[in-house]
């Protein structure tokens, strides 16, 4: 499952990434490392980008990148 498929308010954990190395590094540096837990906060009014809460702050990224972030849901 990828981050782009998660519904609002769902919690999850990053399990991997299928993105180019530069993008991968950037996302990790923003805190999305393997095992990092997050919660989907909302989608923007037009459905994209997505807003998540990770490591105590709010981060927004596009579905296009979110689709490259593999996640496992946490209940």
């Amino acid at each position: 499952m990828t981050l782009a498929e998660m519904p609002i308010a769902a919690r999850g954990r990053v399990s991997g990434m299928t993105l180019p190395a530069g993008t991968h590094q950037r996302l990790m540096e923003m805190g999305l490392t393997r095992g990092a837990s997050f919660q989907v906060v909302r989608y923007a009014p037009m459905g994209d980008p997505i807003e998540i809460k990770v490591r105590g702050y709010h981060l927004s990224l596009r579905k296009c990148e979110a689709a490259g972030i593999l996640v496992e849901t946490v209940l």
């Binding site: 709010h58 990224l61 596009r62 990148e65």
Partner: peptide
């Protein structure tokens, strides 16, 4: 490539 958006919402 489509630019990446990484935006903090403080």
């Amino acid at each position: 490539e489509t630019p990446m958006l990484l935006l903090e919402l403080p």
